[in-house]
Simulated scan of single mutants.
Amino acid sequence: MDFGQKLKETRNMKGYSLDYIEEETKIRKLYINALEQENFKILPPKVYATGFVRRYSKFLDLDSDAMVEEFQSLAYADEPLIEEPELKKREVKVDFHIPYRNILAGIVFLIIAIWAGKFVLGYINQQARVPEPQGPTPPRVEEPVKGNRPDKPEPEIKPEKAVLLIQARQDCWLTVAVDGESVFTRTLKAGESQEFEGKESIYIKAGNAGGIDITYNGKKVEPIGRNWEVKEKEFRVKS
């Protein structure tokens, strides 16, 4: 059974409509139909299209790895197979093997360092206590009061941050990374909006660059591209 036929027959067997699949998987009906018809030319860039195949296959309880491999061999026969990025937290396993003797030596060293520090500080304080010569106390001269002039407080400098508001006039596939971490990957439908805030930078990649309005730190910016043009842009906080 062909790739597209397998998707379509499985969907029909489960009784799913294209509208239902679009709502559940957040994949545009246009792209779902393109996969079933094997019309790969209208699909978005390779990494997004591969992600659509994997998500759609999993939703239909198909072997997603096999479907992705078959899709890439059909749609990108002249290109190497790639694996689409998934927003997964990487588990970092750190094994601590600290010998008991090293721990004991560290504790002893810390105790000695604290004791030596107190000893040196006490010696310095003792040397600093020089007796003052006895003599008559000089008269106290009071300066005239010229009025209370409180010191003017220094203005508080608030760190600048990046606040990005994206409003969709048309459906737009969107990927957003805040401070180097991916936080958003899906289609932003017409009429929807999303706001992102970062301390250092906000990176966006839009599949329909002319179909979204972007406001950065309260100021609307020029479109980053034309309708249905794939564009990317990074907004960085000024130092």
Rank of each mutant, 00 (worst) to 15 (best):
69 E>T: 14
227 N>D: 14
107 I>F: 14
138 P>N: 04
103 I>F: 11
32 I>Y: 00
91 E>Y: 12
197 E>T: 15
129 R>Y: 07
101 R>Y: 04
158 K>H: 12
214 I>H: 08
86 E>C: 02
159 P>D: 12
209 A>N: 05
29 K>S: 10
144 P>D: 13
226 R>I: 05
231 K>E: 10
113 A>T: 15
230 V>M: 07
131 P>A: 12
138 P>K: 09
215 T>F: 02
95 D>E: 12
177 A>Y: 09
47 V>C: 03
73 S>L: 05
145 V>W: 10
18 L>W: 02
71 F>H: 01
164 L>C: 04
200 E>N: 14
162 A>F: 04
44 P>Q: 09
235 F>R: 10
94 V>I: 15
105 A>W: 09
118 K>Y: 09
128 A>I: 03
149 R>D: 07
217 N>L: 04
178 V>S: 03
51 G>L: 03
112 I>Y: 10
87 L>N: 13
143 E>D: 11
64 S>D: 10
84 E>R: 04
97 H>M: 09
32 I>V: 12
186 R>D: 13
208 N>M: 01
236 R>H: 10
73 S>P: 01
90 R>E: 13
98 I>G: 05
139 P>V: 14
201 S>I: 08
12 N>T: 04
51 G>H: 03
88 K>M: 09
88 K>E: 13
166 I>Y: 03
114 I>V: 15
62 L>A: 00
66 A>M: 06
224 I>C: 04
163 V>D: 07
137 T>I: 15
178 V>A: 07
96 F>W: 07
206 A>L: 11
119 F>V: 14
156 E>L: 15
130 V>A: 05
55 R>S: 06
143 E>N: 14
101 R>H: 06
145 V>R: 07
185 T>M: 09
85 P>T: 01
78 D>M: 10
108 V>Q: 06
106 G>T: 06
190 A>R: 13
48 Y>K: 13
28 R>K: 12
234 E>T: 15
14 K>V: 00
217 N>A: 04
120 V>M: 12
175 T>M: 07
118 K>V: 08
197 E>P: 00
109 F>M: 14
239 S>C: 00
151 D>R: 15
47 V>L: 11
80 P>S: 06
161 K>H: 13
195 E>F: 06
199 K>Q: 14
35 L>A: 05
111 I>S: 11
32 I>L: 12
127 Q>S: 09
42 I>V: 15
79 E>L: 12
85 P>Q: 01
64 S>R: 00
224 I>G: 03
215 T>N: 06
33 N>P: 01
21 I>S: 01
177 A>V: 06
83 E>Y: 14
56 Y>Q: 02
183 V>A: 02
8 K>E: 00
67 M>L: 06
123 Y>L: 11
119 F>E: 13
194 Q>S: 12
12 N>F: 00
192 E>C: 03
204 I>G: 02
72 Q>R: 12
51 G>Y: 02
153 P>L: 08
19 D>H: 08
145 V>I: 06
22 E>R: 15
